[in-house]
Amino acid sequence: MSIRELISQFGEKYLAALVTTYKLTLSAFLLAVVLGVVITVFRLSPIRPLRVFADFYVQIFRNIPGAALLILLVYALPYLNVVLSYYAAVLIATALIPSAFCSEYLMSGVNAVAVGEIEAARSLGMTFFQTIKTVVLPQAVRSSVLPMTNLLVATMLTTALASQVPLNPTDLTGIVSYINTHAVGGVTAFAISAALYCATAVIIGRVGNRIDRKVRILR
């Protein structure tokens, strides 16, 4: 099947699939960052149970395979009378896993802040929150740009999990198996999806690099 035939037959479906993948990627990424920030605050807190809990959380979600997590959410949770929509299950799975990595990146961003600079801020008479606001956060955020860019790409790749559950409209990966079971899409269907994923990843990478170069801290 040629590209033209494929697009005339499945063009709208492709567009919908692209939108699904982008929508999932963005919402999962935002959720992951929010969760990641909370978990990082816990891990840095002077309150031990919160630290232990957060470390445990990170170990679980950075080590569980996406497929295993999705299967638990979709097929196991109903046994506990918790029934999620397919979309919600995919969204949660694709947010929880990146959230653990997000926290790891933020931790190394915070760790990159020199202890001496925190002491200097304190010596100027800054309170805890002033020190966080003027020294710790700006530096941690600026040194997290590249890892966060990678995280956004990784989140997008994780959203391919959506192809494992019946979603309508399906995502960019799901549509390849859809077309291949409904028509002889062959290599073209694969190539279109691959190109869309890859182009998105490359653009994200370029933008991230540009921002990083602008805000990188000389040490």
């Binding site: 790409v153 192809s163 494992q164 890859c198 990843a201």
Partner: peptide
């Protein structure tokens, strides 16, 4: 290409 395409798509 390797880094920008989900594993599942390669599997398919």
């Amino acid at each position: 290409l390797s880094r920008g395409i989900p594993t599942l798509l390669f599997i398919y």
